[in-house]
């Protein structure tokens, strides 16, 4: 990339490198604003991303980095975007191994909301959802980056891939996506989201064999049955058997997000009582049954302590 543009930008360093592009940190000298500049030699990809950002920039959606400018310079195509400070989900998983159900559902909800927006407002299929393309900002916000694989949606949620070819990351891309003749649609992004969330909550890398992963409760019995059912439906091989659109996945994730579980408050209270000098209560029965999830506990302490 050229070291400095005439309009007063300074390149601070290389942020990352992909197969067809590089991303630089650039600072506007006028006010010190830090941005990201994506540089690529692929004109078609640059045009696609520029058109996408122009289409969605008016909505200022929280999931997508803000777009500032696009230009061409000596055969290199540049895209100026909001700089997303933070770490990718891949880096986060490498550090932590796996995330909690609450964190997974929160991230899933943010992604589902954004991708539903992409499909409904911009008529776009993302096609490359994977932990490398999801960044978690320092303030906890989720950002989706890298729109090099997007393609337009046509009727009935199906995509026209002519001129866009195969795209996606093995392990996350739906079976029909990796097949030249397969028909992709919004259900393809649903598949990728299911694989991503499965990997987050279990720590099992979808890129590693076996391709067909066990249900999430096989890894941890404390995980929600409802989440297990949702993820199992999302990653079905036949796209017609998955939730057809991201909006439906979002709705179910919202329900899960409200589901703190009846044990949460009781557990917090018990801990609070343990820290106290004397327990105020002797718990004789603590039972909740609902929607196939059973949580039962019974404790009677002979000395009145928990």
């Amino acid at each position: 990339m050229t070291e400095q543009r005439k309009c007063g930008w300074r390149v601070e360093g290389l942020e990352g490198r992909g197969a067809f592009s590089e991303v630089y940190r650039v600072r506007r000298e006028r006010d010190g604003l830090l941005l990201a500049c994506k540089v690529t030699g692929e004109r078609a990809q640059w045009e696609r991303e520029s058109a996408l950002f122009r289409a969605i920039s008016q909505y200022h959606h929280a999931l997508f980095p803000r777009w500032y400018e696009s230009w061409e310079e000596r055969g290199r195509y540049c895209l100026l975007l909001e700089y997303v400070a933070g770490q990718s989900l891949k880096e986060l998983l490498a550090r932590r191994g796996r995330l909690s159900q609450r964190q997974t559902v929160e991230i899933g909800r943010a992604l589902a909301e954004g991708m539903a927006f992409l499909a409904e407002k911009a008529g776009i299929l993302y096609r490359d959802l994977n932990p490398d393309n999801v960044r978690i900002c320092q303030d906890g916000r989720v950002k989706l980056i890298d729109f090099g694989c997007v393609c337009p949606l046509e009727r009935q949620g199906r995509a026209d891939r002519s001129g866009f070819g195969r795209a996606g990351t093995p392990g996350y891309a739906a079976p029909e996506q990796l097949n030249e003749a397969g028909r992709v649609g919004t259900y393809s992004d649903v598949y990728a989201l299911g694989r991503l969330l499965h990997g987050l909550v279990t720590g099992d890398d979808p890129c590693l064999p076996p391709r067909r992963k066990p249900p999430i409760r096989a890894y941890d019995r404390r995980l929600s049955r409802r989440l297990e059912r949702l993820l199992e439906e999302c990653v079905r091989a036949d796209g017609r058997e998955r939730p057809p659109e991201m909006r439906r996945v979002l709705r179910r994730l919202c329900v899960l997000q409200e589901e703190r579980g009846p044990g949460a408050a009781w557990g917090e209270l018990r801990e609070a009582l343990r820290r106290g000098k004397e327990p105020d209560y002797r718990f004789e029965k603590h039972l909740f049954r609902g929607k196939g999830e059973a949580l039962s506990w019974k404790a009677v302490a002979s000395d009145g302590k928990l």
Partner: peptide, 14 residues
């Protein structure tokens, strides 16, 4: 059990 929910909490104030 579909469509049902039940809660039963019993305590005694020490």
């Amino acid at each position: 059990e579909e469509g049902l929910a039940l809660t039963l909490q019993q305590t005694t104030r020490a």
